Computed example of a mutant assay.
Amino acid sequence: MTNKAVIHTDKAPAAIGTYSQAVKVNNTVYLSGQIPLIPDTMELIEGDISVQIRQVFDNLSEVCAASGGDLSNIVKLNIFLTDLSNFAVVNQVMGEYFQQPYPARAAIGVSELPKGAQVEMDGILVI
């Protein structure tokens, strides 16, 4: 029998739809997509794409912590960008948050994201 738990923290943005921030099944945590919302205000952070990327990593970090892990436990990261020319910025900022071995990753260009965000990320971590 699996051990399934819904993960929630007030230190990350609340869900803006019919989903949980994360779901933990045994030692695997499935992180829902995070956009660059400020948890206290639920508004998009102001600033360039690097500021938005940092906010997303900060939000993911808080959900990871609430699940008993941290960013280093992420084994798969999906990055959605409205402008793939920001790919180099993603790599630069990601290097501030992750060390080798890096997680498996995909970067996907999309036409639009919720609330007009330029970046969204989701992932899977194993604790």
Rank of each mutant, 00 (worst) to 15 (best):
11 K>S: 08
75 V>D: 02
45 I>W: 00
6 V>Q: 04
25 V>A: 11
102 Y>I: 07
37 L>H: 06
116 G>H: 08
58 D>F: 07
4 K>L: 14
93 V>Q: 08
53 I>E: 09
48 D>E: 15
54 R>F: 02
100 Q>Y: 10
50 S>Q: 09
39 P>C: 11
66 A>D: 12
72 S>Y: 06
47 G>N: 11
73 N>D: 11
49 I>W: 02
20 S>W: 04
74 I>S: 02
71 L>E: 01
64 C>K: 09
121 M>D: 01
122 D>T: 13
43 E>C: 07
77 L>Y: 15
123 G>I: 04
31 L>W: 00
115 K>V: 03
44 L>N: 03
1 M>R: 12
118 Q>Y: 02
16 I>G: 10
34 Q>I: 02
126 V>S: 08
121 M>H: 04
115 K>R: 09
121 M>A: 09
76 K>I: 01
95 G>P: 03
27 N>D: 12
98 F>A: 09
52 Q>Y: 08
127 I>R: 15
33 G>K: 08
47 G>H: 05
42 M>G: 09
23 V>Q: 00
9 T>A: 08
18 T>W: 04
2 T>A: 12
16 I>F: 15
78 N>E: 11
7 I>N: 11
70 D>F: 09
112 E>R: 04
124 I>S: 00
2 T>V: 13
88 A>V: 06
18 T>K: 10
5 A>P: 01
37 L>C: 07
80 F>E: 14
81 L>K: 05
30 Y>G: 00
46 E>H: 08
34 Q>D: 06
